[in-house]
Amino acid sequence: MRFESPATSKEAVALLASEKGHAYILAGGTDLLVRMKMDLIEPDLIVDIKGIPAMQSINASSTGSRIGAAVSGAELGEHNKLKKLWPGVVEATNLIGSDQIQGRCTMVGNLCNASPAADAVPALIAAGAKAVIVGKNKRRTVAVEKIITGPGQTSLARDEVIEAITLPKRAPRSGDAYLRFIPRTEMDIAVVSAGINLTISRGIVTSARVALGAVAATPLLVPGAARAIIGTKLDDGALDKLAAACSRACKPIDDKRGTIEYRTRVAGVLARRAAKIAYQRAGGA
C-alpha cells in the first residue's frame, strides 16, 4: 500500500486517476481505517487530502458559506459564525461519534462514506447544500442529495474528489435543526433521523426542506413533508401532517439497529421535534 499526501486537489485527482488498484481518499479516516481494520477493504493507494489548503478552510457568510472537505467536526463546532448561520448542519456533524472522532471526522467523509444513516447528510440536504467536485478535466457542483446512490455507493467517478461543501445564501428568519434517535446517549449510529430547514415570515413558514436518514437506502429529501408545513404557523395540525408525510416516505429495513415499524414511526416523531426547533431558531414563537 502506498500513502500519498498531495498539496492540491488536481494532484489528488491525478493520483487517483493513475492508480490501477484500489484507491481511497483519507480525510478523517474514521470510516476508512475501520473498514481496513475489519478487513473489508485492502487499499493499494491512500490519498490524504488534509494537506490541501483549499480543503482546510471555512468561509461563512449570510450570502453563502463554504466548508473545505478536510475540515474536522471539532473545527466546525468551534466556528461560531457558521454555527449561528447553520446550527442544524453543525450540530448534525458534531453528533458523529465521540470527541475523539470529532477530532478527525469530516462532513465530506461522512457524505462519501455513503451510509444511509450518516448524520451530517440529512441536515446538509435540508440546508440545500452542494458539493464542489474536482475531476480530471472539470469541476462540477452537485446537490448533496445526488451524491449518495445507495449504501456505500456514490455518484462520484473514481478520479473525482469533493473539495468542499457550499451552503446557500441565508435568508433572514431562517432556522435549521437535525435530530437523530440512538439507543444510548452517544456513540451510536442513527436508527432514524430528521433534518429540517425553514424560513418564516410573520410566523408563517414560507419555505422548507425536510430530509430523513436511516429510513431508506439513501438519505431522503421529502418534498411532501415540506409542503405539509409551508404556509402554516407550524400548528399541531401541520405537525401531524409533517409527521405523517415523513412516515409515509420511509422505506426502511429491519436490521440490528431497528425495525421497519420503529423507524417509520419515529421518523415522524423526530421530524415534528426538529421542525419545532428550526421554527424557534427562525424566530417563530
Binding site: 444510548r184 446517549t185 456513540m187 440490528k256
Partner: peptide, 23 residues
Amino acid sequence: IYGDDGRLQNPGFLDYRIPVCSD
C-alpha cells in the same frame, strides 16, 4: 444479535452497546 445465517451481526462496541459515561 444473530442473523438467519447464524452469524453474529454486532461483534463490536459500536453495536454491542455497553453503557457510556453520559448514559
